[in-house]
């Protein structure tokens, strides 16, 4: 039997995907979380009209609409609307249940691999991707050049990818 909680539970499975999608449009973590939370509130109101197959496309549409509302509300100037549309079209194409499945596996491996990173790599990742600090200001804070921060970020991601690959090979 379909109930609001079942539909919501299914919707929450897409949370991480939707937040990444909203982030690609808004380029702001907290706004992207707001957009997705608003989409979930819409699900809790309209759950009876939704079925499992239409849930993800519907969530994508609502998340996009909420993201655009937030851009307007915050008076953010989208300098390249054409670029945003192009980004959006790629997300519409690739974001589906099989992608979700792949992401889940990736996430499980990442959980193990992230602890192998050095503290300075963690600091650079949170500073650059969460706090949106420039490589220059991170360099200043960490007593390094901006270029070495860029290299640290790139190498950390490469190391994580290698670790994830090893972990998936080992499990298969």
């Amino acid at each position: 039997m379909k109930s609001r909680q079942i539909v919501l539970r299914k919707a929450f499975q897409y949370q991480s995907l939707l937040e990444s999608y909203a982030y690609a449009l808004l380029k702001d973590w907290s706004l992207s979380e707001d957009a997705v939370q608003e989409a979930f509130i819409a699900v809790s109101e309209k759950w009876s009209e939704l079925d499992e197959s239409s849930l993800l496309p519907w969530l994508k549409t609502v998340t996009k609409r909420r993201s655009i509302d937030l851009i307007r509300k915050r008076k953010r100037i989208v300098q390249r609307e054409d670029l945003m549309e192009l980004v959006d079209s790629h997300f519409q194409n690739f974001m589906d249940d099989s992608f979700l499945d792949m992401q889940r596996k990736y996430k499980a491996s990442l959980q193990k691999c992230i602890s192998s990173l050095r503290p300075d790599a963690i600091q650079a990742i949170t500073g650059f991707y969460i706090d949106k600090k420039s490589t220059e200001s991170l360099g200043q804070k960490m007593n390094r050049s901006a270029n070495s921060i860029r290299i640290l970020l790139m190498r950390s991601r490469q190391a994580l990818r290698k670790c994830i690959l090893r972990s998936s090979e080992a499990s298969s």
Binding site: S16, E19, Y23, Q103, Y106, L110, I114, I125, I130, L160
Partner: peptide
Amino acid sequence: YTFETKLIADMAQ
């Protein structure tokens, strides 16, 4: 890359 960024940033934080 965007999904990967989101996951790495979340977990690093």
